[in-house]
Design a protein around this nucleic acid. Sequence first.
DNA 1: CGATACACTTAGCAGCGGAGGC
DNA 2: GCCTCCGCTGCTAAGTGTATCG
Length: 614
Amino acid sequence: MWRSWAALRLFEKQSVCLVLGQRMVAIATVAGKRRRVRRKSVQEEQVRWWEEEKRADGVKWSTLEHKGPVFAPRYERVPRNVRFYYDGKPLELSEETEEAATFYAKMLNHDYCTKEVFNNNFFKDFRKSMTPREREIIKDFRKCGFQEMFNYFQAESEKRKAASKEEKLIKKNENEALMKEFGFCMIDGHKEKIGNFRLEPPGLFRGRGEHPKMGMIKRRIHASDVSINCGKDSKVPSPPPGSRWKEVRHDNTVTWLASWIENVQGQVKYIMLNPSSKLKGEKDHIKYETARRLDKVIDKIRATYRDEWKSKEMRVRQRAVALYFIDKLALRAGNEKDEDQADTVGCCSLRVEHVQLHKELNGKENVVVFDFPGKDSIRYYNEVEVEKRVFKNLELFMEHKKEGDDLFDRLNTQVLNEHLKELMEGLTAKVFRTYNASKTLQSQLDLLTDPSATVPEKLLAYNRANRAVAILCNHQRSVPKSHEKSMENLKEKIKAKREAIEKCESEYNVSICETMLPHAVCLIAITPMQSRDEKKGKQLDRLRDQLKKLELQETDRDENKTIALGTSKLNYLDPRISVAWCKKNDVPIEKIFNKTQRTKFLWAVHMADENYRF
DNA sequence: CGATACACTTAGCAGCGGAGGC
DNA sequence: GCCTCCGCTGCTAAGTGTATCG
């Protein structure tokens, strides 16, 4: 029934090996029948944490040992003939200044360099990095010439691409060696993959949207900036020769291995484990279990907030309307933000200019038009028909307010979350997003899956269900540069395939006619004739299959051009729903989860059978 | 009580490598 | 065998939410 169990098992093993960083040799015969997997060493498989007891509160691990982070490669000066120009003339720069100049030069063909804020911020920091003499000369950004440096880096990049196989292999091996040494840690006796074991290299800060700090220089991180977290009795990672860590601590109530403070925004950055790790997997599992608990009380919560639309207290009304938006539209909570960040909002931080009320719009009544920059400055635009009571409340909330005023002036995320905590243990605003996303996937799959369909058809159904979630969560992407072209190519291919089918059909008909010749003539030839027919018939079937697949691909790609499916798959959809769907519908899991996703969701593959329901 | 610090999840994008078409 | 293009992966910014501070 489940054809791919064997394949799935194999995948698990591969994933496990990947996680453990072991070498494995898989031998496959030509027929693919005798498949043996040999391990170099017998080591424990990945922790089956989902079969273990939960740990006492707050403590995240007992032992933790690692090698510390990998530092960014040190700066190498550009060749002497690659020069920075000022006012049309070459100008020799000190090492530090030159490095800063290369940050900008590398981005010369980027959109960022057309933005005034970016250029101003860069130039300000650029001047800070200069020697007094340089600062005396370089006073006007418009007189700076980065082109030669830019050309140099382009050429270097071309060179790298054109490198020989051997050179590339050497690079690859070096990388793997680094990964092997620094990419893993030992935690509670198990080897686990680290997520980001390299410190962020210096460069220019690339904020999203209209970020006031874009273009500022993100400085190089040294050992003296880095805090290390590891087990008390473990070997402390060694800093580069001649340097010391900022601090070494042994805090087992947190999950990070190293941290530093980034200079542009003053935020703490961390080195943490890969999503495949027990620590992350457990947390992920809990997240979905919380969302499932919400399912049990959601009717009551909805009834309550509808009731509260009528409350005497403005505070309660606002809370109830906000919660309705969060539930119905999957809006984010909307924490307050500082002035020195891009101006984006979520539910609680909506301002009056972000919503428009229409008694009637396009044949719908009581329409609220949302139009605001959300996370990552992605535009949220939605025309929503709402209950009359909500509409009336919004009119009330907006009374006597001007642009820039908060829509929900008696509400913030802390207040909202405190209220939610009363309704259900562990309930916060973001649980609604997880809940509605997973719930939507489940119901859409139920709706769209035809059990008798082919695998490609089922996959289209799955993608459409996934897409419904991505739309709900407003997971957008910019239309890929190559979209137009790739659609054309696909159409071309489809045309060609149709022609091939026509051709094949006519040939098939001819050969059918041939077999209808008088028996006597055919007797001797019957075997070859039949096989030729069979061959044609099979070819025709295959071509038709291919055509169908292409057509499905066309639909899928076009529907997907501005929608990103990955984010919801990775962060919002209970993977057990997908696993169960695959098992039930005989779709190989690798058709919907790539290798990374399978490693991250290994727990779900084990936990869910075909009857799992969210 | 509001501000700030901290920890951790969620997000889109760029660059790269390898599969698949010619 | 070469080239194109597409998906994967790494990167790091930008959110959420709780704890702690003053």
